[in-house]
Design a binder for these strands. Sequence first.
DNA 1: TACTTTGTTCATTTTTTCTTGAACAAAGTA
DNA 2: TACTTTGTTCAAGAAAAAATGAACAAAGTA
Lengths: 191, 191
Amino acid sequence: MNMAEPNQSTGSIDRISELSDWETSTLEIFVRAVGLVGLPRSVGEIYGVLFCATGPLTFDEITERLGISRGSVSQGLKLLRQLGAVKLQYIPSSRKDHYIAELSIKRLMRGFVKDQFKPHLESGQARIEAIEQLIDQEVSDSEKNHARKRVATLRVWQQRMRKLMPVILAVLGGASVLMESDDQESDRQVI
Amino acid sequence: MNMAEPNQSTGSIDRISELSDWETSTLEIFVRAVGLVGLPRSVGEIYGVLFCATGPLTFDEITERLGISRGSVSQGLKLLRQLGAVKLQYIPSSRKDHYIAELSIKRLMRGFVKDQFKPHLESGQARIEAIEQLIDQEVSDSEKNHARKRVATLRVWQQRMRKLMPVILAVLGGASVLMESDDQESDRQVI
DNA sequence: TACTTTGTTCATTTTTTCTTGAACAAAGTA
DNA sequence: TACTTTGTTCAAGAAAAAATGAACAAAGTA
């Protein structure tokens, strides 16, 4: 197990110079995680750098630490705020916006589900209904039965997905199954 | 609500000619669904065409119905079999392989989790441990405390993700929370 | 063995997605 | 108002992912 490599040469994040090794490795985790749900690496990097930071960061600090373009940072922050994964922190002394990472996994997941998952479920609902119409109208009698069976299956799947969402949030929030405090976000006061 | 368009012109699947309208619309659902988890559209199409079919399909039937290349079908089937989403069906009379779609959502999800999700969780585990080492070795004392706090957060997140997986499978399988029969796959005998 | 049928692999092309950076807007300052 | 600072937008370029199809393997047949 050779995990004692000297510098941030683990293979994928190399342009980053202003970050310490543990930060670089942590970013890698986030980059992978967001990749898993189809988000661009820059989004993982931005969340990651905020996650690691000891305090709020400005727009410029983010671009500098990551060495990526202002455009990417702007878009990435926009998405992350929309997801509720990053928040604006008001700092009286400064004109600049200051950003912090949301540290509650429950809220992170809730934002993601609400923004990316629910819409799919809902449009799926509409599509299934459209398919049922098509079947009634256009499918020959001999196949109608089979087609209806399949769509019925789709409906059941949808129902179950729907029931899944609250359960996921409950588990991540530390409900019942787990024995831990609800949301854990120790430090960082909101002003 | 104008969902009464005449033909398969919903915008994204147009090369397909050998499919009826309800099949085309159903494929669209699967294409979206696989896209959501980062799989290529061809995979969704292949699963979808098998899902809609009244019986097992051969390799050639799949390429013909979808109008996509043999290479894509080969790779797509390979992945789908690996995920347990598609199975080979032995047919005595024919030399060709015959494929059918797995219709149990529980098994579908289990395959996906096992193949795509678990590995990420496990490699994440290793990464976190590496990060802890980096922090002990290289982070200045003043920041060490903060860094440790963050990694502790990562650990908690990981634990919760782990606990999540069995719960998901239970819900999809129709356990407790739901009042339905376990796996529903009515038709299609296995020879 | 020579031939056919069935399916896979992989280098290339195509398509899609992401990033960049210059132009632009918004809002504060002097 | 003119100037600066801060952040956004979006067309163009770069990078990544997916699809293609020809070459190849594997296994059955005559």
